[in-house]
Structure formats: structure tokens, C-alpha cells
Design a protein around this nucleic acid. Structure first.
Lengths: 120, 120, 120, 120
DNA sequence: GTGGTCTAGACCACC
DNA sequence: GTGGTCTAGACCACG
């Protein structure tokens, strides 16, 4: 479920965090489902429990999970996060479109690529 | 020409490097034009010359500049870099489109946003 | 009567304790009324009896309940607790007013807010 | 400047964090002023550098500070945080006013206390 | 068993 | 020198 890439320049805790965000956003992990325990996952991935702890803390901070002492960590209700994620998407898209301009790419080529990629 | 943002998370050398890439890609710095000397720029920005040196080295490594011992650094011919940058752009766009799907955004909304942003 | 929120950061025993304090202070549970038995409540809430036991022990320690061996736990006479609670309230209010100052809020705005909130 | 209370139930990193928030909000630490280095402060307080690091990370997350690798940590521009802090204040005040009601305190007594405390 | 905090000590990137 | 990440190992509170 989680795969670490030691050659990735991102810190391990970000890799773990982002992988869980992906799993939650794609609906593979459902609301209130229990995440692997910090200790179990740290053994499975052969990394320190503190690193998992940090990843889980960030998931909680970003609204993707909640944890209860003595019980475990669980997937949060993420329905409230959608507007924020849409806003994020458009911000990133705008940044990318600036780059497109400096490559000589116009709206027509980009839109065509989108149709090919997402289907129209 | 170069402005540093100390509260930016990126290291200074990356800020310097990326700013020059921007200036070069936008045609503000032209081919074979001389870049500021390391010493002059380090004084102007009040930062360590090593930091400028590293930025220039990266510019050279990425094909945006070349240096002549004892003469200085100059803007390279970047026409050969375009295909690579276009490829980069499409890779980043594809990653973003995956995110769009998980936000419930389809090609129609995205294309409309592009038209509004870039003009059609 | 008691509702647990698993995503609440507070431990379960505090949630149980505080909910009973609320019920007692609001006069919903009256003096000498019997609290639910530890066993019954633990089953109703699907949590460990030790958790209820701890909540009840704290209620007793804080003067909100008393227990009779073999009989159960009962609501205590809380009239003696009022002065202490008033004192608590003013202490917390004073701390909050310091914060108000650093936000540029003066007595007029605060008093107006109180009137709107509590009615005058 | 920073005093730790080992008997305080709050974790050390929260004590450090909250103390700096206090210093920043009260204008004792000014914008862009450098915070003590993580190592220096950890020695001064006789606690582990990781604990300071965590406190500083939270300050940064909450918009009170920014840090630059190789340079240090600095006080951020907090003017943008004011509306949020005002909102926080009113939320906490509302919670307190509920408590006041259960103590039999009405708006008149509370407003009088505010006048005595803040001056009118 | 669970998560949360802390220490000690290491290594890295940056300046 | 600075901050950032990670490991190893410990202790605590909670259930």
C-alpha cells in the first residue's frame, strides 16, 4: 500500500503523508477506517516510528485523519476539504499556464492535450 | 533585476537561478549577453559569493549559460532547450489533471478556465 | 444522554466526566439522583468499564458525585461548589481580556458583544 | 525570556511556542527580528534541540515566524493574523459566557468586572 | 495494544 | 554557523 523511494529527494514523512492523501482522496481508504498503527507501519516500512508519527500528525493537521490516544488513527470526513482542493488546483494550474506561455504553447494546444488525456 | 525573498522556503541559490531562467526565457536577457559578475551581484544582493557561484553553476549545467574563464558568464543559446521544457510542461500538466479528477473537475471546466486565463 | 466523539482530542474519560458535570450544573441531573451503573454505561457506550470508572472517580474527587459501595454513584450537593466555579470563571475571563488587549479590542466592543450574546 | 515549567502538564514544545507567540503579539519581538538559534536555545533551556525545532515549526505553521536554512528563524509579519485572532477571541468568549450562565452570572456583573479590569 | 512527547546523537543542505 | 530530517530508544497517558 505504501512504497518508499529512498532516492526521492522528498523527506520520508512527506512521502508517507502524500501517499495516504492519495489513498484517501481516491476513496481507497474510507471515512473512519483505521490507518495502520504507527508501530506496525514503521516495522513494515523499516523506518522509525517517529517518522510515521510525523506523517500522521500532518495528515491530522490537514484534515485527512484524526487520531485517538490508545485507540489508533482513522480517516477523517474529508467532504469539507473539497473547495480548498479545487482552489489549490486552479492556483497550480495558473502557475503552470505561465510556464506554458514561455514555451510558446497557447490555449489551443493545451486544450487539445487535455481532451486526449481526459477524454472529451 | 534580482530580488531575494528571505522568507521564501527555497534556498537563495535556487531563487537566483530561477530568476535568471525567467529573465532568459522571457527574452529579457539575450543570447551571449553577459551576466553580472559573481562579485558584483553578491555585493548588490548582500549575500555570499558562493551562493551566486552555485546559481551560475546550475545555470550552466542546465544549458542556460556558459562561462569563460577570466571573462565571466554569458547567456547561452537556449533554442535547443525548448523541446525539453515542453515535455516538462506536459508531464506536470498530466499530474495536475489526475488531481483534477479527484476534485470532480472535468475537461470542460478546466478548458473554460484556461480560456479565461490565457484568452482564447 | 452521553454522546462520545471519537474524533475529539480529549480522552474518553474526560468527555464522560465533563458531560456529567454539564448535566449536573444545568440541573438536568438532580441531587442524590443515581448515575447509570458503570457496567450499564460501559455497555451502552461500547467502551471499557475502566474508562467510566475513571470518569466517576473524577466526578467524586471534584465534588460532583459521591459513591456508596455496593449501591452505586449519586449526584452530590453542589451548592458548595458555586463560589469556586465563579472564581474559576473570573480567572479565565481575566486571561481572555489580556488577549483582547493585544487584538486592539477595548471594553466597549466586548461589552457590546456580551449584550448581543446574553441579551441585556 | 523563556521559562519552562516542568510541572506544567502542557508539553514543552507548546510552552516554548506559546511563550514566543506572547512575545510576538505583545510587540516585544519585532518583525524580521531573529529568534534564538535552535541549538543555542536548547542549551539555554537544557532541553533537546528537537523540542525547540518542533516549537519553531509550529510557530512557522501558525504564521508567527519563518525560518531559512543556514540563516536562522525570524519573526514573521503578523498583521494578516489579526482578524483570525479576533475571531478566536470571540469564540473563546462565547464559550466562557455559557459557563457564566451556569454560575448564575449575568451580563451586568460581567460587564462590571470588565470595567474594573480594563478600565472604562 | 494505541498515540504523544522527549532525549541523545547523527547526517544533510545551506550560507 | 544555521535549520531540517532521521534513527534509536525511552517513558507516559489512554483503553
Amino acid at each position: 500500500m505504501i512504497i518508499l523511494d529512498m532516492s526521492d529527494k522528498r523527506p520520508l514523512y512527506e512521502q508517507v503523508r502524500d501517499r495516504f492523501i492519495e489513498l484517501i482522496e481516491h476513496g481507497i481508504l474510507l471515512q473512519d477506517e483505521q490507518l495502520p498503527s504507527i508501530r506496525a507501519l514503521s516495522i513494515e516500512l523499516s523506518i522509525n516510528p517517529n517518522t510515521i508519527q510525523r506523517a500522521y500528525a500532518e495528515l491530522e493537521r490537514n484534515g485527512y485523519a484524526y487520531s485517538v490516544k490508545g485507540r489508533g488513527s482513522f480517516v477523517a470526513n474529508i467532504s469539507g476539504l473539497l473547495p480548498e482542493r479545487v482552489k489549490d488546483f486552479y492556483n497550480e494550474l495558473d502557475a503552470l499556464l505561465i510556464k506554458a506561455k514561455t514555451c510558446g504553447l497557447g490555449p489551443i494546444e493545451i486544450k487539445q492535450h487535455i481532451d486526449e488525456y481526459m477524454g472529451n
